[in-house]
Design a protein around this nucleic acid. Sequence first.
RNA 1: GCGGGUGUAGCUCAGUUGGUUAGAGUAUCGGCCUGUCACGCCGAGGGUCGCGGGUUCGAGUCCCGUCACUCGCGCCA
Length: 599
Amino acid sequence: MHLYRSHTCAQLSAPNVGESVRLSGWMHRKRDHGGVLFIDLRDHYGITQIVADEDSPALAVLEKLRPESVVTIDGEVKARTAETVNKDLPTGEIEVFARAITVQSAAEELPMPVAGEQEYPEDIRLKYRFLDLRRETLHANLMTRTKIVADIRERMSAAGFNEFSTPILTASSPEGARDFLVPSRLHAGHFYALPQAPQQYKQLLMVAGFDRYFQIAPCFRDEDPRADRLPGEFYQLDLEMSFVTQEEVWDTMEPVMAGVFEAFADGKPVTPAGEFPRIPYAEAMLKYGTDKPDLRNPLIISDVTSHFEKSGFGLFEKIVGGGGVVRVIPAPGTHEKSRKFFDDMNNWARKEGYAGLGYVTRKGGEFGGPIAKNHGPDRMAELYAELGLGENDGLFFAAGKAADAAKLAGAARIEIGEQLGLIDEDRFDLAWIIDFPFYEYDEDTKKVDFSHNPFSMPQGELEALESKSPLEINAYQYDLVCNGYEIASGSIRNHKPETMVKAFEIVGLSKDDVEREFGGMYRAFQYGAPPHGGMAAGVDRIVMLLVGAKNLREVTLFPMNQKAEDLLMGAPSRPELAQLRELHLRVVEPQPRPASGEA
RNA sequence: GCGGGUGUAGCUCAGUUGGUUAGAGUAUCGGCCUGUCACGCCGAGGGUCGCGGGUUCGAGUCCCGUCACUCGCGCCA
């Protein structure tokens, strides 16, 4: 017989009754009745009940062992009597009567229990991640993740993509996020950088003629995390295609993305391939107040600025007069909501850091609230008619500079949708957001900068760069969104050196800068580069959506905490002095903050 | 860097208006128990109320500071 097991803890059922078997696993739960004792023996595959009584030499050993100890049980498969069958357990028709036990590894008292799905503090979960990962939900999430990744690989291969691994030690590039740097031993004062994405490499692969590339690629960015953004490192489905328009990228990837979602959506509806809405960025910002709209939310924001150019409501008139806008979010069927509901929304907006959220109530056709009073019932009725709102629909107002109003309206749309229970949780609504602006005006630096990816091709190419105002140029750039999350981002790349130089000139970088910062790629484009484009999809976020997790740590094996510390391995840590010397480094400790009064 | 939330036993939490010795469940340890599957029953141990300072006759409770965890803003092409 095998040293450790003849079966897994999920394999035995009625037909095995009478067999002598050997099982190994963790003691999930122990139920000690004195003369008889039950163990739920758990392994990766499932749970089997072990039973021992006074006829078994295992009884005395099992009584002393703590949960999560690892044991090997030799025993006999017995049918359970009708009253003792456990219908909730796949192996519930049988149990294994223990004849002998080998303790492989006894467990100490646990800092956090494995059995049960209680919540535990994040720092303890991370420090004892190996225990946390034994727990049912997290274990299942990670298994789903590996299946999703395998499924992605199959679909990408079937679509004619080839997987390549690109370097991890590479050069720092000045665009985008903060880099992680790796000091060079051989070159004093020089550093490698970990890739923020394999962006330049995959473009070089296209120049090298590989036509369709993909990779489940680790990416590294030294930025502060969010619930949907891991600190430090994350994985992307990175892909690139030659000789394609952006429409072909979408048409190629819709079946892959819809296919993966459908395969793991557990029957929940998914936007079918070929039917992903394509929403221009400007439209998304107006209608949803964000570039990553949750399309499960039926509320649509409208611009009603023209109604308030001359209004009895002085505040809006003043805002509009100053070049601002007024946006509205409907709150359908709120005639039975109390004043508190509307005031709470206003308080919510203030808490979020906005000036406030105005509102109009409407109950059986009667308008209420200060905005309606000052604006007048006739003009309110006119506004409602234009918006197609009914006699029991409330209306929220976000006013201010266009960008601020859009942001508030977008946040309010989400909040109202949630408060009114308008969002169908059991759906995956996918859509492309397209036509992103190529440049944006940075209020802080008072200059024009790339709004997203500087490697994107501007729509209209060189001619547009030379003839149009930078802020009017869109890029062949697109995001894929799902339920309010950005799950992929991509573009058709700028493969023409002269267009690149011009594009960078507009943000104040010279040809020399381009050659220095993107030397490899710039040089490659001098020797025959195919038009190409692609995208990168956040694997972590896709898994998070599919398993219904609210946080990326629930789908990540060994995540770091919010301060980018690995509490299990103890990273980052201080290196030995000798290591620093070898790397030509010296640490300059940060100065303690001066005590108040000394400054 | 900034703002919100949380912090009481290993863990999940309660703790009134500032008032006697800070409680419960669970886990742990001991005892009992032959059909449980979140087994049950009896008992015990377990606390710098995150930390520091202040107000007060008296602080888990009020004030100030700070730390940890977390969510968000900035940031993330």
